[in-house]
Design a binder for these strands. Sequence first.
RNA 1: GGGCGGUUAGCUCAGUUGGUUAGAGCGUCACGCUUACACCGUGAAUGUCGGGGGUUCGAGUCCCUCACCGCCCACCA
Length: 1091
Amino acid sequence: MTFSPESLPNRFDFAEAQPRIYQQWEAGKFFHAEPPPAGQKDPSRGPFAIVIPPPNVTGALHLGHALNNTLQDAQIRMRRMQGYNTLWMPGTDHAGIATQAVVERRLREEENLTRHDLGREKLVARIWEWKEQYEARILGQLKQMGASCDWERTRFTLDETCAGAVRQTFFDLFQKGLIYRGKRLVNWDTFLQTAVSDDEVFQDTVKGHFWHFRYPVIDPQPGEPTVVTIATTRPETMLGDTAVACHPHPAKALNTAEAELLERLAKAGTKEKDGIQAQIDNIRERRSSMLPQLETLAKMARDGRKLMLPLANREIPLICDEWAKPEMGSGCVKITPAHDPNDYMVGQRQQLPMINILNTNGTITAIREPSGRTNEFTEKYQGLPIKKARAAVVADLDELGLLGDVEDREIELPMSDRSKTPIEPFLADQWFVRMRDADNGAAGLAQQAMDAVTDGRVKIVPERYAKSYLDWLGEKRDWPVSRQLWWGHQIPVWTCMREMELPARRSVTDLCRDIEAFEREHPDSDLPTELEEFKQLCIDTQNRRIKQLREAYGDKVSAQIRFEPSSGNFIEFVCVQPNQDQIEKELEEAGFERDADVLDTWFSSALWPHSTLGWPEKTPALAYWYPTSTLITSRDIITLWVARMVLTGLNNMQEIPFHEVYIHPKILDGYGETMSKSKGNGVDPLDVIEKFGADALRFGLAALCTETQDVRMPVQFECPHCHALIDQTKQNRELPRIKCSKCSQEFSTQWARKEEDTALPRGPVVSERFEVARNFSNKLWNAARFALINLQDYSAGPVNEQDLTVEDRWLLSRLATVTKESTAALQEYRYADAAKCLYDFAWDEFCSFYIEIAKARLQNPAQQAHAQRVLANALDVLLRLLHPLMPFLTEEIWHNLNKLAPERGLNPVEASEFLIVAPWPEPDLARQDSQIEQQFSIFQQALAAIREIRSRQNIASKNQLEFSVQCTPAIANLLAPMAPYFQSMANARAIAWREKIEPPATNAKASLPGLEIYVDLKDFIDVAAEISKNEKEEQRLAAFIKSKESKLSNESFVSRAPAEVVKTEREGLAHAQQQLESVRRSLVQLRKMSP
RNA sequence: GGGCGGUUAGCUCAGUUGGUUAGAGCGUCACGCUUACACCGUGAAUGUCGGGGGUUCGAGUCCCUCACCGCCCACCA
């Protein structure tokens, strides 16, 4: 079977080639990596590994994923070719909340069922079905993009391997005391009865009220107020108040606030000034009207004055806390630690009790006082939904005469994105990972992760993102890891309540309260005997239990035991190691219950770099590829994911997870908005692949990937009828159907729901920004086609140094430079630079010059074999350099090239069968030759000048031109051999190369540094065009000269600028003057000719 | 409110340590089927470098300032 390159189509048929080539790569096992066998020397250049940021199984991949994975694959492919033992670890993320939410929504929409109707097991089974479907789709998309992942190692954050790692990590942290149980305010959705994450909460502005209440002071002293006024937008929360706060130093606080405002006023623009001034006036007014009272309140707080919380009849303290802002409201603020995030912080600072007032369904609960007893005064509110409770509380306070002003006010209300109902802050038991440093000052998890970046073990590129990483970790906030969901890793802790067995003469609750009070008031004294004995008994009981558990289960379990004063019970938390089913069973039989919550999704993805390699097993893969080489991801998960991987890596492996982190740009639409399905401006990579090909998608994305900017990508609908592109606007992007502006036929969009819409053919969302890359791949395809057609009688053989022509040496010099620069650019994640460098070289140098020149040489029997060998070599190198960005096209051409020129290179060697594993080109730096490049550039300029004359004189290319060149013998020697190429590339015949020539009678002239080109125009001359051109040139030069002269006549420039700069300016001036003279001479000539 | 980016041709973007009168692709205009490629070739036109100050012999580049756009974080009882 003979291969006939002429029969290749003149467009690269990517739709046919992509699946075929991908299948060949997979069959060749090129993606699969194994560590070198134990005890053997590593034959490779060493390990190189990237773990994929696992896409969520929530839905299909979008263009952002396409970018992310293109950039990874480019690194992987280059390193593989460079000889590294390269692993790209693929997988997907179970994405807890997001995935459960999607499935629950569908359940609701399609079957009108809630998760409670289905039950935990069945819901989880449904989510697994969803996962299987989307995982397959995601992996399919990655393959169509050409991702060279090691699919045999594909992991899922919820699979068995990852589950083992999660449990091991949890157990380890639990045992180290770095995991603890605590209360935390969560965003509670009372409708769905679930906690939602911060990013599922949106703020809605609604009309509300601002109610002022008066709380009576208990035993006010003379001169003190009898009531304290507070204000709230949520009256019902007062049932859970445990303090009222005022500022400790109101005068100082007012001063500070005023000073800050004054500072802002000085800087503010006119628009803001009025507002700020009003605030300042307010402060000044308050200073006279309210300050004395605020000072009194602060003193009362210090004296321990108490207030009587109405309705609940609860004694609550008046406290000092800086959270109270003297410049706002009444200057005092009610504190409800269990139902407001800020109050919660105050509560923690001030050790206030936290009183929950809500049931999970949003009705008022049976309120329990800190002492443990139920509050009988609030029974009447029990069971009321919030709205009714609010009205009742206001009415009751009014009746007591404690209601003050009621203002109308716009309120920012947090709403649940999922149910569109208001969010209630709700106190829930949660598990936390301790990020803070140890009490003895030893670096905690957060600090260790910070150190890894500050000392350079982990390098973040671009550097500025290290700041977000460090700032966020620097807060060292404990990481809440439990989620009230069903989809995820269930927390491996079993809990049991145990009653305190002790012959207490007094109630446990009282004893505890006394201990607490005594320790607070006499921190340095020993406890009284009774209390001390009780405390010791508690400790002994705990220790005895821990010992019992240890005896029963050894180190397979770790226990934390806590005493709860309010109930007098011990709570035992037992964390069980992985694969201890028997122990779990025994615990459950003994009355323990497993925690129903699951772990934060980021807990499992935090382990990704080592869990995917098999940890906690000591696998050879883990030993070989960990730490991985680089992580390529987007900036929005630097904190959520990157920081946590560093932290768990250091904890579990005692080693960083990766050496480098590259943060790539985000893809925005034409309006600068992030792409998302919910806006309708998302582009499906598969639509781009279908229209432009995978290589165009990849090259296009890489070319846009610059360091500082996000990628802005205007998108269009493609009409399925006539293929016209219709710009997407904010108006039309949410329509279910669109009428094509060109063919007037209609098509459907992603919003199509109704049958009449879905029946229409779908118009995909694409971007014409991929056209450039598609055109480029076609250019390459055809350049290769040309080469192949001309290589049919190729014979391998060495290329002798003395046979190299100027154009050969120019090309080899450029090739060396391009190899060096594009390699460096890729290695440094400067993708746009790499793409541009290769694009320019391939198109403007290889195609426009080398191939054009080759056309003449390949005709000449004496030069043909040599030209073929250099051409094959150049194409070979170019294919290898482009392969990471355009794998399919280059692989396809490589195979064709192998058929005609299996042995190639300046010293021919047999090419590898597959480009994907061909060696990466080494830049032949000895070939870099600036002199040759300069010489060649004279040829290029001369050629351009002749072409320009042809164009301005409007001379058809079929008419041959004659030209002569006035230049030095050196330049003549250089240009004379290029005569055939002037002929083939500009249809221009060289008459003479001399130092002095007689210009032809009718001529057009071009002057370049060191040479003058005269084109003999014969009958073609268009005098008017020539005059106009020269006049324009005259003007331009005159202006240029004028500016140069004024610069050079400037004394301070000449004396202060570096001599070199002055010299180039002088030379520039001289040359321009010469040119001007020449232009003027031509004009005189031309005007004589003009009628 | 805090932090980080951005603003250069109609559009999308480059622009090194300050140094000729600022570049590319697309689009526009003119010409063109010439031994691969019309998804092509040849040539042309196109800019108050967001505004205002400053430093400097010299500023798209450095400093200050204002305006606008985007992202992240924290948020007002």
